[in-house]
């Protein structure tokens, strides 16, 4: 089983990102589960969402305490809360940032990667909403789910031009990260 935890702020679409990942995994023929951390929903407040992908039906309901993969939508959260808590040593931490991974000086043995997801989203989607871009990046960096399944899930969720643009952002992020796998 692969467990993913997403750290974002209310309004950034952390829950949608987890749902898209799980939905795409489902369409890839895997079993999956996505759920939010159920906080009071406020714009800007730190939020978490969770996703599990497995070859068997997912039964557990506990929150993700030892993630294989972390997505950090807002790097300012790193100093505010213990985002890296429980991250597996052979795991991956993906951060939306234009900085180099080393600049964050994170105390982890896991691989740390960055992608300028907000910039990509601004350029392709025209808005600084980068949750779909980060989903594409995670799949590029890990090979967890096929990019076609992610794009399909994104377009099912956002029909029409919005979905198409988001799917383009997914592809771009996927291609960028795939090279570094």
């Amino acid at each position: 089983m692969k467990e993913i935890r997403i750290h974002g702020r209310g309004g950034q679409g952390a829950v949608t990102a987890a749902v898209l990942l799980a939905d795409a995994a489902f369409h890839d023929g895997k079993f999956s589960q996505a759920f939010p951390s159920f906080g009071s929903e406020r714009m800007g407040a730190p939020v978490q969402s969770f996703c599990r992908v497995d070859d068997h039906r997912v039964r557990t309901r506990e929150q993700v305490y030892t993630p294989d993969y972390l997505i950090i939508q807002d790097w300012t959260l790193i100093s505010a809360i213990d985002c890296l808590h429980g991250l597996k040593e052979d795991g991956l931490c993906l951060i939306d940032s234009e900085k180099e991974p080393g600049e964050f000086k994170l105390d982890t043995k896991a691989r740390v990667v960055t992608i300028p997801a907000t910039a990509i989203a601004r350029e392709i989607i025209g808005r600084p909403i980068q949750n779909t871009t980060l989903v594409g990046a995670l799949c590029g960096a890990t090979g967890l789910i096929s990019v076609d399944a992610v794009k399909q899930s994104v377009q099912n969720r956002f029909p029409g031009p919005v979905g198409e643009k988001n799917a383009q952002a997914v592809q771009k992020a996927f291609d960028l990260m795939k090279g570094g796998r």
């Binding site: 749902v19 799980a22 939905d23 589960q33 996505a34 759920f35 997912v58 309901r61």
Partner: peptide, 12 residues
């Protein structure tokens, strides 16, 4: 059904 844990969970 458990609130949030099931109501807000996505699964097959």
């Amino acid at each position: 059904m458990d609130g949030f844990i099931l109501t807000h969970a996505y699964e097959p």
